[in-house]
Amino acid sequence: MTDVKVIMGSASDIDIAKKVTKTLKEFDLSYEVEVISAHRALDVLKESIEKDDAEVYIGIAGMAAHLAGVMAGMTIKPVIGVPVAGSKTGGFDALLSMVQMPKGVPVATVALNGGENAAILAAQILALSNEKLKEKLVNYKKEMREKVLADDKNLEEI
């Protein structure tokens, strides 16, 4: 079974998907990446989700951005949405499409173009049953803390 399945609404979302996969690799998580439009290839999306071959799903889409919500409607597994800022509204339409889900169909939504955070959230979900991954996340947080402290120290020397 794959840890994370990343589905983009179109190939134009590839840069965000690369942020996701780069971060998943840092945590040694297995993943698959697909391009499937919820609007133009619903049957293909349904087949992909029905395989039930991932623990967590990440849906990346801009504009109307119904992809993550449709995915969430097809599975009981966690779905993380990454709204893409690229439309005339700056991505606000994509963001609202993901966060304004009906009761019973949640999509955990990260920031616009927030591929890294989607991957980290997926890792945190998977770490609930994986001690080695939990340790990696704890170390990741420690490294972030150390960087902030180093930045502060360097600031004091200005």
Rank of each mutant, 00 (worst) to 15 (best):
M1K: 08
D3Q: 12
V4F: 04
K5I: 11
K5E: 13
V6M: 11
M8F: 03
A11N: 09
S12W: 04
I14M: 12
I14V: 12
D15S: 13
D15W: 06
I16Y: 02
I16K: 03
T21R: 10
L24K: 09
E26G: 07
F27M: 05
D28L: 01
L29D: 10
E32D: 15
V33C: 10
V35C: 04
V35M: 00
A38L: 11
H39N: 14
R40D: 04
R40K: 15
A41L: 05
A41V: 05
A41E: 15
L42M: 08
L45Q: 02
S48M: 05
S48C: 14
S48W: 02
I49Q: 04
E50I: 02
E50Q: 14
A54P: 12
E55F: 01
G59E: 05
G62Y: 01
G62T: 03
M63Y: 13
A64S: 15
A65Q: 09
H66T: 00
A68V: 09
G69E: 07
V70G: 03
A72F: 06
A72Y: 11
G73A: 15
T75G: 01
I80E: 02
G81V: 12
G81Y: 03
V82W: 08
P83W: 00
V84Q: 07
T89D: 15
T89Y: 01
F92Q: 13
D93E: 14
A94S: 14
L95V: 01
M98N: 11
M98W: 03
M98I: 12
V99A: 12
V105T: 08
V105R: 02
P106D: 11
V107R: 03
A108Y: 07
A108K: 02
T109H: 05
V110K: 04
V110D: 05
L112D: 10
G114N: 10
N117D: 14
A118F: 08
A119V: 11
I120A: 01
A123Q: 02
A123S: 07
Q124R: 15
I125Q: 06
L128H: 00
L128T: 13
E131C: 00
L133P: 08
L137N: 07
V138H: 02
N139R: 11
E143D: 12
E143P: 00
M144Q: 14
L149I: 14
D151C: 01
D152F: 14
D152R: 09
D152T: 06
E157D: 10
